[in-house]
């Protein structure tokens, strides 16, 4: 991956040049403010992951000194990394914003989520809990940190992405999106998913985290962790993901590029201890963020698209 490395803006001069991060930041702030200006009851998904950490900084820049015009929400699969959950709670408290947590566990108790095995990945089950929460609070817009560079189906999604009354995405019938004139209109029961950092890449996110000196959960940086090698991935050894018979447990220096559900998120080998070192590794990487780390996307060429149609985030 090649890189535009950040150069500080000039202090003086006639028209200062705007770096690519300035451009991306300004676009995302504009989108967040359009949500606040046009949607009656929005919410922002905050998982404690790096993309949603960026969203919170952008929201600060969009709305401070006022409070955010929406609460934060996380759908907890019950299989999240404890470091990330602790970070999530600490960051929400630090910002003084309201955090709603809804858990897949509750949907299982209600019987709306049925797992075939106790250790089955709960990643796809999140969609059910998510739609239940949207209905519970009557949200008409849900802001998320998805990026178009993550996955092929996402590359075709709008910034304001319409969901019907069943929470479904219809990729073949999306509203045309021109200029930055977003059509935010929905009928009762329908909602919008809004993606302010659609145009950011993994590298942009790390450059922004570095520029803004934003903290991220410790597992985004190199640490020693027991893993097993499976299908070309490093699978972390946890209670939920024990080693299989015949597999050898190794302790390696690794970091996570994404921090989703434990059952489907893998780290990569790394010695990067700072954002700058992660940027250096990202410039050199030969495998995409999801390709290196997600077991769930490898099941079929279209697995993300199918999950998204069912209401996945």
């Amino acid at each position: 991956m090649s890189a535009v490395l950040e150069k500080p803006r000039p202090e003086h001069g006639t028209l200062p040049s705007r770096s690519h991060l300035d451009w991306l930041e300004s676009e995302a702030i504009f989108i967040l403010r359009e949500v606040a200006g046009e949607c009656a009851n929005p919410v922002l998904f905050f998982s404690g992951g790096k993309d949603s950490i960026v969203l919170l900084r952008l929201a600060e820049k969009a709305f401070r000194p006022a409070k955010f015009p929406f609460p934060l929400m996380h759908v907890d699969t019950g299989h999240n990394f404890p470091e990330v959950i602790a970070f999530r709670d600490a960051r929400a408290a630090e910002l003084g914003e309201r955090l709603i947590v809804r858990s897949v566990e509750d949907s299982i108790r209600r019987g709306t989520v049925k797992l075939r095995r106790f250790d089955e990945s709960r990643n796809a089950a999140q969609s059910v809990t998510l739609l239940e929460a949207i209905a519970e609070f009557g949200f008409d817009a849900a802001i998320g940190g998805a990026r178009r560079d993550e996955e092929k189906a996402r590359a075709k999604e709008r910034v304001f992405s319409f969901r019907d009354e069943f929470g479904q995405w219809d990729p073949k019938n999306q509203r045309p999106e021109l200029w930055s004139l977003y059509n935010t209109r929905v009928a009762k029961g329908e909602h919008m998913r809004v993606f302010p950092i659609s145009n950011w890449t993994e590298l942009d996110v790390w450059q922004y985290l570095s520029r803004e000196r934003l903290e991220v959960p410790s597992i985004y940086y190199a640490h020693r962790r027991p893993v097993v090698r499976r299908n070309g991935l490093l699978v972390p050894v946890t209670e939920i993901t024990p080693p299989r018979a015949g597999e050898t447990v190794e302790e390696l220096s690794v970091r996570f590029r994404t921090v989703g559900d434990i059952s489907c998120t893998c780290p990569v080998e790394s010695v990067a201890a700072t954002a700058a070192e992660v940027i250096a590794e990202t410039v050199l990487t030969t495998v995409t963020e999801r390709g290196a780390t997600r077991m769930d996307d490898q099941t079929s060429e279209a697995s993300m698209e199918r999950r998204k149609k069912e209401g996945y985030f």
Partner: peptide, 17 residues
């Protein structure tokens, strides 16, 4: 190809969409 798709690349000088 059904719809508009967005692609990203960058050089040392500029980010392209």
């Amino acid at each position: 190809t059904i719809d508009v798709a967005y692609r990203y690349f960058a050089t040392p000088r500029r980010k392209f969409i």
